[in-house]
Amino acid sequence: MADVAAQAVLTVDHLTMRFGGLVAVSDLSFRCRGGEITALIGPNGAGKTTVFNCITGFYRPTEGMMTLRQPAGATFLLERLPGHEITARAKVARTFQNIRLFTGMTVLENLMVAQHNGLMRASGYTAGGLLGLPGYRRAEKDAVRKAERWLERTGLVDRADDPAGDLPYGDQRRLEIARAMCTDPVLLCLDEPAAGLNPRESHDLNELLLSIRDRDGTSLLLIEHDMSVVMEISDHVVVLDYGVKIADSTPEEVRRDPRVVAAYLGVEDEEVEQVEAEVLT
């Protein structure tokens, strides 16, 4: 793991995103190191989801460069790839703040859709599968097995044949993570995975994320408001406020950083000028 950890999986350089006159993200640079959990935190409206959308190709950044380096050595400039290739080739998967499952399909089908590209190749781009060639049948069986493995890890195997829309909220969150993991990502981006979970579910989620980091060697980048999750599992924290990075270090140091505290809690009136001076320097 040491050589992987030394490298940055994702390097974001001078990322700027403007919507008309509004600067949502301004000159942001940070790195996600391989085999680590990086948390992106900040108050509401700080631009965290915008950063995510830039990384995963839903927005095209106004300026900046995002380099993804796979452990095997291949590098991709994410801002130049079309949206779907960011997952298909560069292997960046994501989940959504408001869960986006295929509610009318079963839990298992959700995980099969996630393995679309591999299955598509195995089915000879539909032609072979239409003729019922054995190669595709084998690939499908493997895909089901892989899905089952993820269902076991997320504790959803009993619900495999139920529609995803029938699952309770916490299960839907875990299913979305399992679905993202079925794309074999190098970097998994989670947009508020613990939102709406009770403490127990949140604890299970921590376990799951740690096991993804340790067992699968997938690096994680997560946006989170739940500080118990952030402080407990992340190796590295980046704090955004109004689109600007105000801190970038270990959880312990971030917790003590006065600018972070000010951004989250606000400050006493008499301290405003002092904090402003700190922030602006």
Binding site: G57, F102, G104, V113, N117
Partner: peptide, 16 residues
């Protein structure tokens, strides 16, 4: 069918 259910999620899974 996934496209019918949610196009954005499809894209995020690498489907063209």
């Amino acid at each position: 069918e996934a496209l019918r259910e949610d196009e954005i999620a499809c894209r995020s899974l690498g489907i063209n």
